[in-house]
Design a protein around this nucleic acid. Sequence first.
DNA 1: GTTAGTAGTTACTACCTACTAACTTCGCCG
DNA 2: CGGCGAAGTTAGTAGGTAGTAACTACTAAC
Lengths: 192, 192
Amino acid sequence: MATRMSGRERREQILGIAEEEFAAAGLYGASTETIARRAGITQAYVFRLFGTKKLLFLECVDAAFERMRLAMVAAAGGASGIEALTAMGQEYNDMLADRTTLLLQLQGTAAAAAGDGEVRDAVRASFARLWQSVADTAQLDPVTVKAFLAFGMLLNTNAALDLPQVDEPWSHQARTRIKPGLFTHITTETNR
Amino acid sequence: MATRMSGRERREQILGIAEEEFAAAGLYGASTETIARRAGITQAYVFRLFGTKKLLFLECVDAAFERMRLAMVAAAGGASGIEALTAMGQEYNDMLADRTTLLLQLQGTAAAAAGDGEVRDAVRASFARLWQSVADTAQLDPVTVKAFLAFGMLLNTNAALDLPQVDEPWSHQARTRIKPGLFTHITTETNR
DNA sequence: GTTAGTAGTTACTACCTACTAACTTCGCCG
DNA sequence: CGGCGAAGTTAGTAGGTAGTAACTACTAAC
């Protein structure tokens, strides 16, 4: 018989499992039944705690974006400019190991397209926060920030396709890190 | 009473509708019933023509990637180097109007994560073809190609979030075109 | 030891899902 | 006209879905 948990513990446990499920299968692909079974509880109780599948999903996606955002800010550690961007790039690369976080961002974005508005607004807001934080931290021009985030989106794609498992020339190219200093050139060029 | 179509006509009609549905809702979010009803036929006939929902989906995704790939190659029009990349960038931008194509790429990628292998392999292959074509056409170094495609992924995200409808500073930044020449700097820097 | 609140379940509804097999109707060709 | 192949339907199966309401069991406080 399963031991009882406090409400907060249970919530966090379910969130962890739900993140994995949603990351792997998306909003519609994942099932609350599976999440509940993995947590060792009844599906009905999941609804009691989170109200709706969509709300649970949004909470997971939001957490993923927030995790990423905080990791970026923390990596910069008070620095700004190209130095901050370099540190954030390094951090993003380290997060490749955490496929769940990357995939959740992708699944959230994909679900936003299906969007009943509620989902789209929530994901937009999460994305906006991430964008703002990177911009505020780096304090570089918009185009540089855009370039940085564009590479991030490519890494999300890599995670989805599980490119590290593919041993072909193009996949290696997709995975090579670019030198941190490269962003600077875009910056200087655009600012004049 | 609905007019009869030739097999090929019907196939193409269904593919067109299915692309819209899958682009909007993804592999699991879209329903064959809806697709069939929109085409004015029975759902059973969809299965007769395409065998399985997954196969229909993959055919749509593949078509989207292929459309993009051919558009890139055509835009370059025999040119190579930074000139080709500029033309392709222009073309990619023009394709922003075609949300269906962009979203299908995203939905394909998201579905690949759920991947029963079959989906993942197919999407990987489509992505590889696109990557190869851009690389072969531009004939520039890998990092430049990577940068180009990274911006493409960001545009897919923009499409999903429908950023053109958002009137905020960050969303405008996300949508500003970068000057075509900027990629060159990345190139020269990396090649030495 | 009773009460109160919270963790959790049972049992269910109403519906949608992909997918199948067997049947029907149309339109063209000899 | 007759027939034949292709276009399309009817009617179903088997199973999964999110979501709900009403109940139970545990635990901590008084």
